[in-house]
C-alpha cells in the first residue's frame, strides 16, 4: 500500500501555491493535512502527477476574531481549533463538533480547510459550516471570492472550486445570544465517520423559536441543510411536538444511501432520532445561554 510516484513541491505562500496550480491544473493535488488524501494516495485510488504541499504556508494558519465572527485560516490544524478559547466562546457548535473529527492524532495534523475542501458528506466540518452559514474565502487566478457552504458543496467529494483555486479561509459568525447549539452523531465506533450527524442551532425569544438551523451528515451527497424543518420550527414553542414534527420533516427530505454499515432506511430513521435529540439539547442550552460577545 504505497503511493504511486509523484513530484512534490512545498510552497511557502498562497501566491506560490496559486502559481503552481495555474501551471499544473488538473494534474496536481493540494496537500493540506493529508489525513484524507494520504490514505487515498497510499491505496493508489488517486495518482496525481504532482503534489503541492501547503503545510509550510504559515500565513494560512490562524484563528482570529473578525467581522463579528471568527476567521480561521485554511491550514489551521483541527487540534488548534479544538483547543481555541475564542472558538469555544464564539462558535460553540464548532467547538462541540471538533472532538468528533477522527482521533486527536488525526486532528493534530488535519486542517480545517482540508476537511472543508475534501467535501466528504459524512464529515463533521462541512455540516457545521452549512449549519452556521459559514463563509469560505477562495483565491484563484481571477482573484478572491467568498462562498457560502451551500455554494461550496457540489456533490460527493466534490466542491465548486476550480482546479486552479484554493480555499484559504473559513469564517463563522459569532453565535447570537439566547442561542443553543448541539452536535450529535452516531458512529459504529468512536472516531469513525458517523452514520448520521446532526448540527442544530436554536435561537429563542420569549421561549419561542426565533431562528432554527439544522444540518446533517451522512444523508446525502453533500452536507444537507434541512431548511424546511427549520422553517416549521420558527415561531413555535419548542415543545416536544414541535421538535418531533421537525425531526419527522428531516426524515422525509433526506435521501441517504445504503452501504455495508447501514441501510438507507436505517440512516433515514437515525436522522429523525438524532435530529430530535439534537434539537432538545439545543433548546435546553438556549434556555441557559448567556449573551455572547466577540
Amino acid at each position: 500500500m504505497k503511493p504511486a510516484a509523484f513530484e512534490y513541491v512545498a510552497v511557502r505562500t498562497t501566491e506560490e501555491a496559486l502559481a503552481e496550480l495555474a501551471r499544473d491544473g488538473q494534474d496536481a493535488r493540494l496537500l493540506a493535512g493529508g489525513q484524507s488524501l494520504m490514505p487515498i494516495l497510499n491505496m493508489r485510488l488517486a495518482t496525481p502527477r504532482r503534489l503541492i504541499d501547503l503545510n509550510r504556508v504559515g500565513e494560512l494558519a490562524y484563528i482570529r476574531a473578525h467581522d463579528g465572527g471568527v476567521a480561521i485560516g485554511a491550514m489551521t490544524r483541527q487540534r488548534a481549533v479544538e483547543k481555541s478559547a475564542l472558538v469555544a466562546r464564539c462558535v460553540p457548535l464548532l467547538a462541540d463538533a471538533m472532538p468528533w473529527v477522527g482521533h486527536f492524532q488525526i486532528r493534530n495534523r488535519g486542517t480545517i480547510g482540508g476537511s472543508l475542501a475534501h467535501a466528504d458528506p459524512a464529515a463533521e466540518l462541512p455540516a457545521v459550516a452549512a449549519c452556521l452559514d459559514a463563509r469560505v474565502t477562495v483565491r484563484g487566478p481571477a482573484g478572491t471570492r467568498t462562498l457560502t457552504a451551500d455554494q461550496l458543496y457540489w456533490t460527493y467529494l466534490t466542491t465548486t472550486l476550480a482546479p486552479t483555486e484554493i480555499l484559504t479561509e473559513v469564517w463563522f459568525p459569532t453565535a447570537p445570544s439566547r442561542t443553543g447549539h448541539a452536535w450529535l452523531e452516531f458512529a459504529r465506533r468512536h472516531g469513525d465517520y458517523a452514520l448520521v450527524g446532526v448540527a442544530a442551532a436554536i435561537m429563542l425569544e420569549e421561549d419561542s423559536v426565533a431562528e432554527a438551523r439544522l444540518a446533517l451528515t451522512g444523508v446525502g451527497a453533500r452536507p444537507v441543510r434541512a431548511r424546511d424543518a427549520e422553517r416549521r420550527l420558527v415561531g413555535r414553542r419548542p415543545d416536544d411536538a414541535a421538535l418531533a414534527d421537525a425531526a419527522e420533516r428531516v426524515k422525509q427530505v433526506t435521501e441517504p444511501q445504503s452501504d455495508i454499515h447501514a441501510t438507507a432506511e436505517y440512516r433515514r430513521h437515525l436522522a429523525g432520532v438524532l435530529t430530535l435529540r439534537a434539537l432538545r439539547l439545543a433548546v435546553a442550552r438556549a434556555r441557559q445561554a448567556p449573551p455572547v460577545t466577540t
Partner: peptide
Amino acid sequence: LDGAAVRSCLLLAVQ
C-alpha cells in the same frame, strides 16, 4: 512530530 502525536503513515518523509 514537533511534540504532537501523528500517524507517520500519513506523512511524507519530505514533509
